[in-house]
Simulated scan of single mutants.
Amino acid sequence: MNVLLCAGFVLCWSSGFIGARLGAESAGAVTLLMWRFLPLAAVLVVLAATAARASWRGLTPRDVARQAVIGALSQSGYLFTVYWAIQLGVSSGTTALIDGTQPLVAGALAGPLLGQYVARGQWYGLALGVSGVAVVTAADATAGAGPPWWAYAVPFLGMLSLVAATFLEGRSRRAVPPAVSMTVHCATSAVLFTGLALAAGAATPPAAPSFWAAVGWLVVLSTLGGYGLYWLILRRSGVTRVNTLMFLMAPVTAVWGAMMFGEPFGPGTALGLVMGLAAVLLVHRGERVRPRAGRGAVGATPPATAAARTRSRRPRSASPSPTRS
């Protein structure tokens, strides 16, 4: 997998936690998320109706509806919990640390849900990565007074939402072009957050320049860069590879938060960074080992390829299973 592509993904995804902290200083989560997605969705819809019309050919309403559900999980549900947690007082680094447990959850579920099994060496890497997350979390929690205990469960719910979106995409039978999925995801988030903001009376944006700077930061780096690269790497390399990179988000965000906001960064955070890097190397090295039984490790076969292989085994006269829609 291209090193520059992975590095760009880590930086862009980590920027979302920093942007959430920037925006939290001038507006509530719903207001910030509404104005993050509303202008972007308008631009993408116009492009979809003009320059990108060819990307929509052959897609059915069911394909688009599926992408809307994926967008509601991967953007709306995930981002709302991240922003809410940060506004409750959970630091950007700690929020990223809690989200860093995603690879273990995804790796455990990949076998029964996608038929992509985790090799022994990859499990060692996943365990090391979770240990690194625990080390940095402990260091952050003991650095000073924090939010109420239940606030740490909020980003955990968001992590589960993103895992659900990842597997729903992995079980898709049709590969949707990135331009289409990005448009549908952003339009879905724009509708949901605009509705929430109007209902809460929080649709009016603040006049502070810092608010619009945070919006621009989030649109360019987090949405276009982070989510675009996430789905690209997911389709090219599989679930475990893209989710293993999540182990790097917590230490990178912790460094970023320490530089921009003075959040605590000590030996525990540095140790977690080293453990996260080692975890990524272990998992990627484990991908080179192919099981003899013919069941590839997670990430060795992209989800789209695995789905196509499943379909190729079915008789031509058989109708598609509704559970694989």
Score class of each variant (00 low, 15 high):
residue 320 P to H: 13
residue 66 R to E: 07
residue 4 L to D: 06
residue 253 T to I: 03
residue 238 G to C: 02
residue 98 I to D: 06
residue 94 T to Q: 14
residue 314 R to D: 13
residue 212 W to V: 12
residue 48 A to E: 09
residue 297 A to V: 11
residue 308 A to S: 11
residue 250 A to Y: 10
residue 65 A to R: 13
residue 51 A to N: 01
residue 110 A to C: 10
residue 222 S to L: 09
residue 271 L to R: 06
residue 7 A to G: 08
residue 257 G to W: 05
residue 237 S to F: 12
residue 43 V to N: 07
residue 192 L to Q: 06
residue 125 G to I: 05
residue 104 L to M: 15
residue 292 R to E: 15
residue 30 V to K: 03
residue 222 S to Y: 12
residue 230 Y to C: 03
residue 169 E to A: 11
residue 132 G to W: 02
residue 46 V to P: 09
residue 217 W to D: 02
residue 257 G to H: 04
residue 320 P to A: 15
residue 245 L to P: 00
residue 148 P to R: 06
residue 247 F to N: 11
residue 255 V to G: 09
residue 183 T to M: 12
residue 290 R to C: 05
residue 209 P to N: 00
residue 167 F to D: 09
residue 318 A to S: 13
residue 166 T to P: 13
residue 54 A to R: 15
residue 24 A to G: 07
residue 312 S to N: 06
residue 274 V to C: 10
residue 182 M to F: 08
residue 134 A to S: 08
residue 109 L to I: 03
residue 223 T to W: 00
residue 105 V to T: 12
residue 224 L to A: 09
residue 40 L to F: 07
residue 114 L to W: 04
residue 47 L to R: 02
residue 174 R to C: 00
residue 117 Y to F: 09
residue 109 L to M: 10
residue 172 S to G: 14
residue 40 L to K: 02
residue 44 L to G: 04
residue 230 Y to A: 01
residue 278 A to G: 10
residue 325 S to W: 11
residue 67 Q to H: 14
residue 10 V to T: 07
residue 78 Y to V: 03
residue 14 S to K: 01
residue 6 C to P: 00
residue 191 V to G: 07
residue 220 V to N: 02
residue 223 T to I: 15
residue 213 A to Y: 10
residue 232 L to Q: 12
residue 118 V to P: 01
residue 157 L to Q: 04
residue 164 A to C: 04
residue 234 L to Y: 11
residue 263 E to D: 15
residue 205 P to L: 00
residue 285 R to A: 15
residue 316 R to D: 14
residue 75 Q to P: 00
residue 92 S to V: 01
residue 294 G to M: 09
residue 144 G to Q: 15
residue 111 G to F: 08
residue 249 M to T: 14
residue 262 G to H: 07
residue 57 R to V: 13
residue 303 P to M: 02
residue 69 V to G: 04
residue 27 A to M: 05
residue 290 R to T: 11
residue 41 A to L: 05
residue 125 G to V: 05
residue 146 G to N: 09
residue 263 E to T: 08
residue 103 P to I: 10
residue 80 F to C: 10
residue 106 A to D: 07
residue 114 L to A: 11
residue 55 S to E: 15
residue 261 F to R: 08
residue 132 G to R: 01
residue 307 A to K: 05
residue 189 S to D: 08
residue 141 A to P: 02
residue 320 P to W: 11
residue 255 V to C: 05
residue 59 L to V: 10
residue 101 T to M: 11
residue 294 G to I: 06
residue 54 A to D: 14
residue 241 R to T: 13
residue 122 Q to V: 02
residue 143 A to F: 06
residue 59 L to S: 10
residue 111 G to P: 01
residue 168 L to W: 11
residue 274 V to H: 00
residue 291 P to S: 12
residue 82 V to L: 13
residue 129 G to Q: 09
residue 159 M to K: 03
residue 82 V to E: 08
residue 107 G to Q: 09
residue 281 L to D: 03
residue 243 N to M: 09
residue 290 R to F: 00
residue 253 T to F: 04
residue 122 Q to K: 07
residue 77 G to E: 04
residue 164 A to L: 06
residue 313 R to Y: 04
residue 223 T to M: 14
residue 77 G to T: 05
